[in-house]
């Protein structure tokens, strides 16, 4: 019927970026399962997929009581040794009977939540993207815990270079003519709706995680620039405030690097509308200009003390 997911993104709680070996150790969430890791175009490490059982009300725009039983798939990942994500999703499918079956039935279908009774795919999707009801399916809390498990690893020193809130991206994917809509809400939440031709594949999850990563990078860079109060305080102070961005963020921007080729057009489509990269580049230029100005000022004062 449809797939629902939620990705949380935040700054890894360590003073610097962590090396490959540490990524492996931190993400080793299940014995006997290796952490998958790719090195190009930057280090990306992901924990094995883990399941969480649920039996609860599913979201519904019409506030209908819809019960779903099954499992949610989740993993944690670290990009560039610096950014953490906790990601969860579940495929929602119609059950063959209206009563709950033995748990082994659901475990034989990992990552599927079966709907007991009647439900419309659009009603579920709208409900999930819209205002979530209390006590309904809470993918956000599951993803948050998959971030916590990384952030609280004893291998991290917890001395992050700056403080920043996590962002939350809720997404829904349904079959249809290819389309994507990204919505920025007032708080730290964003929503994505994707229509995909053909069957759902985990590549859609990768796409949403990549979008969430870049949205977090942009959100965080905007925050750092805002906190620096360019023009509102002395140059060296501004530069000190901007420094963490240069040290920890600027090199991480690499849109669609991990996205399946077939889904790259979704990224391009969003770029055309939202101009993610253009905004990022403008901010980066602004930061670099401040650094240059400050260097020039320092040079001048050194020559004419």
């Amino acid at each position: 019927m449809l797939v629902m997911g939620e990705v949380h993104t935040g700054l890894l709680q360590s003073s610097g970026e962590i090396p490959e070996s540490a990524c492996r150790d931190v993400l080793h969430l299940m014995s006997g399962e290796t952490v998958r890791l790719s090195r190009r175009p930057m280090i990306y490490a992901v924990s094995p997929d883990l399941l969480t059982g649920v039996d609860c009300r599913l979201p519904s725009a019409s506030r209908s009581r819809i019960r779903g039983v099954g499992t949610v798939v989740s993993h944690s990942s670290i990009t560039g040794g610096r950014v953490v994500q906790g990601s969860s999703y579940a495929r929602v499918e119609r059950a063959e009977t209206d009563r709950r079956l033995a748990w082994s039935h659901y475990l034989a279908r990992p990552g599927v939540i079966e709907v007991l009774g009647k439900a419309k795919s659009s009603d579920l999707g709208d409900g999930f993207i819209g205002d979530p009801q209390p006590n309904g399916l809470d993918l956000g809390s599951i993803s948050a815990r998959f971030m916590d498990v990384v952030q609280s690893s004893p291998l991290l020193d917890r001395r992050a270079p700056f403080k920043v809130a996590r962002t939350k991206v809720r997404w829904v994917a349904q079959p249809g003519d290819p389309a994507i809509r990204f919505t920025l809400n007032a708080d730290q939440t964003r929503t994505i709706r994707i229509a995909h031709s053909g069957d759902f594949t985990p590549a859609v999850v990768d796409l949403c995680e990549d979008l969430a990563l870049h949205d977090w990078l942009l959100t965080t860079l905007l925050l750092i620039v805002e906190r620096a109060r360019i023009g509102g305080r002395a140059g060296p102070e501004v530069v000190a405030k901007l420094a963490p961005a240069v040290d920890h963020l600027l090199h991480l921007w690499m849109p669609a690097a991990r996205v399946d080729e077939a889904l790259v057009p979704y990224w391009h489509g969003l770029e055309d509308r939202m101009r993610f990269t253009a905004q990022w580049e403008r901010l980066v230029r602004r930061i670099r200009d401040q650094l240059t100005l400050n260097d020039a000022a320092m040079l001048r004062s050194a020559r004419h003390p």
Binding site: M30, V54, D55, C56, V69, L107, N135
Partner: peptide, 26 residues
């Protein structure tokens, strides 16, 4: 040296009671 029992323990996914919506750890 392979802890088979631990391997299986890590693969346990608890049977959720009704109204388990993921907001709390199992």
């Amino acid at each position: 040296g392979v802890e088979l029992a631990k391997l299986v323990e890590d693969r346990l996914v608890d049977d959720p009671s009704p109204d388990t919506n993921g907001s709390r750890p199992p």
